[in-house]
Nucleic acid binder design. Structure first.
Length: 565
RNA sequence: GCCCUCGUAGUUCAAUGGAUAGAACUGCGGACUUCUAAGCCGUCAAUGUUGGUUCGAUUCCAACCGAGGGCACCA
């Protein structure tokens, strides 16, 4: 990458002056007028060297100029002692040519080549409609997995649904009460709602549900077991459809019914060695040794808690993928402290299996809706699906005016709705809570999923039109001076790499918006297709590069791209 | 009480310790007989408070104020 090249150039220039630069910090100046890269080495070194930062910067700049690097057109000292680099037109144009020829391969890197990553996300409660929180986790998780793949990692997408426990018991109890068909997803949702309400009233119903819960764990009642089995199958099928809509396909599923007793046994086996200890009839792990807090792994009835199930789950995972390098769990940010403790325990129990490996919890934020439309009156929970459906309906109305046929309208409405939702979740740093504003997300004006989709579709439309006229994009004849687009688009590979490194899809979102805005300004400023203008072919090359990079951004964010808008 | 997140324009979000804190929405004002106007151009507007570290702090440290979450048998 060009940034590495500049880093090296700075380092050797500093060394020439008899100093040690260490890690050279390179950044993109806030404004393009200040160049493409800037470094602050002179300011950082000036103090030690007892010289004025600007004088030192000038010396370093001179040494760099002497290297005659073809990619660098100009080196300048500015402000308090920054050294600014201006990339050469030849380099920038060659990047455009590179993007056009490489297409979707442009920008991929090998920083995680050879690494296997287990990435667990979504992980819903079966029997219970998919909650918005699950939706957020799925969206973040899918984008993370695509980011890791773009860096060469082999990613195993893992789903960990809860198929046993109180939630399921509530649903089964509800099915018996309502007589609902366990193969009907709507009846299942209704059954859970009935069961959940009854449980909260804490009367005889609560006891009945607890009895069912125990019976399900023990498989002691065939009727109940069948209801559970059918309900789970229905839920899973439904989940799979929803995930498909969202762009996820899991490699593996582990169920809580597998991890529960396994986890319990592992915990029991690690009491004598002092990792876990008994306390008030329960089995606990004292996180205080690691500066954390105590958590209960087995309750006083000897049943595994969520904590112990995680221990069992790790066993399942590490057996399925013994050669993994990184294990990531994406869940709500309220579980931050929980996972610190659980990972601390797991690392002790599985000392060998976790040696040299990374266990990481990636929190996703809590999503709240600003408008009253979706608020949960009457105790109705907002499901992930109803969110998508509501947004889709709003989009549908807008798309109708465009005069598409019925099936196109439907496809576009779904893509745009999902794009809008995903964008509003991925645009900010993960972990912080998300405010989802219906009006704003669906205004389609700037800083939105539809904005990115629209820009990409627009660029593709232009390319298609040019093709019909017989114009082929080319960078052979670039104009005397080039614009801002070339100076933004070549940054894509470094943005992608950093987004992976920081687990931060939002960096890619920010970049995609900036690129889109630059392209839209470019588009508005002139006519791209003009058979009489020799520069037209170059403008088409740029358009092609933009379309290609934006498509990649959307792909990594797992935002669908409609054919037209 | 202890611990963890976090606090940036009216609103929703950006800003690997850097230069004039960037967008979008809203408000106000424009351009358009061009390939998609879900677009483009201009403009008003912000770092919770008080200290500290630093050549330089939205960023690091401390205290305070405020929001959310967690802290023994839920997940």
């Amino acid at each position: 990458m060009i940034s590495d090249q500049i880093q090296k150039a700075v380092q050797s220039a500093v060394a020439e002056l008899g100093m040690q630069a260490g890690e050279v910090v390179l950044e993109h100046p806030g404004e393009l007028s200040r160049g493409d890269y800037a470094t602050n080495v002179a300011m950082a070194l000036a103090k030690k060297a007892v010289v004025k930062p600007k004088d030192l910067a000038e010396k370093i700049a001179t040494a760099i100029r002497a290297q005659n690097i073809p990619e660098i057109a100009k080196v300048e000292v500015a402000g308090p002692g920054f050294i600014n680099f201006y990339l050469s037109q030849t380099f920038l144009v060659s990047e455009i040519a590179k993007i056009v020829s490489l297409g979707g391969q442009y920008g991929l890197n090998k920083t995680l080549a050879g690494k296997t990553v287990m990435l667990e996300y979504t992980s819903p409660n079966l029997f219970k409609p998919l909650h918005i929180g699950n939706l957020v986790g799925n969206i973040l998780g899918e984008s993370l997995s695509r980011l890791l793949i773009a860096s060469g990692a082999e990613v195993k997408r893992i789903n960990y649904p809860s198929d046993i426990g109180l939630t399921v018991a509530k649903g089964v109890w509800g099915l018996q009460k309502t007589g609902g068909n366990p193969k009907d997803i709507k009846a299942l949702g209704e059954a859970y709602r009935v069961g959940n309400t009854a449980y909260d009233e804490a009367g005889d119903e609560k006891k009945e549900i607890e009895v069912i819960n125990k019976a399900l764990y023990e498989y002691s009642n065939p009727t109940l077991t069948t209801l559970r089995k059918d309900g789970i199958a229905t839920s899973l099928l439904h989940l799979e459809m929803l995930c498909k809509k969202l762009g996820t396909k899991f490699d593996t599923q582990f169920f809580e019914s597998q991890s529960a007793l396994l986890g319990r046994d592992i915990v029991l086996a690690n009491i004598t060695n002092g990792i876990f200890e008994k306390s008030d009839g329960a089995v606990i792990y004292k996180g205080e040794v690691d500066g954390l807090h105590t958590r209960v792994f087995l309750n006083s009835h000897g049943l595994p808690t969520y904590e112990a199930k995680e221990v069992g789950l790790f066993k399942l995972k590490s057996e399925a993928y013994p050669n993994f390098d990184i294990s990531i769990t994406v869940t709500g940010n309220e579980q931050l402290d929980f996972f610190r403790v659980v990972f601390s325990a797991i690392k002790k129990v599985f000392k060998e299996e976790t040696k040299g490996k990374v266990l990481r919890h990636v929190p996703n934020g809590f999503l709240t809706l600003t408008t009253g439309k979706m608020s949960s009156r009457k105790g109705n929970v907002i499901t992930g699906e109803s969110l998508i459906e509501t947004v889709q309906e709003m989009v549908r109305e807008k798309v109708k005016d465009r005069g598409f046929d019925v099936s196109t309208t439907e496809i576009v409405a779904e893509s745009v709705a999902i794009g809008a939702i995903k964008y509003s979740i991925l645009r900010q740093q993960m972990g912080s809570n998300i405010i989802f504003d219906f009006e704003k997300s669906l205004s389609f004006e700037g800083d939105s999923g539809p904005y990115l989709q629209y820009t990409t579709v627009r660029a593709r439309t232009v390319l298609a039109k040019a093709k019909i006229v017989g114009l082929v994009p080319s960078t052979k004849n670039s104009p005397k001076s080039i614009g801002d687009l070339e100076r933004v688009i070549y940054r894509f590979p470094e943005v992608l790499e950093r987004a992976t490194h920081d687990y931060a899809p939002h960096l890619l979102v920010t970049f995609a918006v900036e690129l889109s805005a630059t392209f839209n300004a470019f588009y508005a400023n002139q006519t791209i297709i003009d058979g009489k203008d020799p520069d037209s072919l170059y403008r088409l090359a740029i358009t092609s590069a933009v379309a290609s990079v934006l498509e990649q951004c959307l792909y990594v964010l797992a935002i669908p791209l409609p054919e037209k808008m």
